[in-house]
Amino acid sequence: MDKLKILLVDDDEDDRQFFADALEGVELNTELRQLENGKSCMEFLLNDTDNTPDLVFLDLNMPIMNGFECLEAIRRTPHLKDLLVAIYSTSSAERDIEETFEKGANIYIKKPSSFNELKKSLKQVVKMNWAYHLNDFKKENFLLKI
């Protein structure tokens, strides 16, 4: 079985390390690529179409091109409009959450403050039956606040 291709876009090096370690820790059949901002994300997605990921984790607060702009750019691109995008941010502000869903995010994960929690979240998201959830879209199901 093919490895699940995961792309993490986050400018914070520590957070990227936590993420990578946690993903490795949950021992799922995944392949992780890390990028530092929206701009490099878009360059990768537009140019390297052979390696289009199955799931993108997108931080919001980033330099050069932030998560909101990146999300918009993804949804504007025809072959990316159905790409699964998980927002991965520290913000728990209602309007940030609202805005990302309006712009086409599939799930919102608040960055946890414990490594264990992070592992749990990642496991949940990776193993999620996306087809089922997308058919019966309910925001509550896609909002992982920890």
Binding site: N61, S113, N116
Partner: peptide, 20 residues
């Protein structure tokens, strides 16, 4: 809220990793 929480979250994260 954001700027205070960010470093705090990292402290907690490192502590939890250390602990583990």
């Amino acid at each position: 809220s954001h700027d205070l929480q960010e470093p705090l979250r990292k402290i907690q994260m490192f502590v939890s990793r250390l602990d583990e």
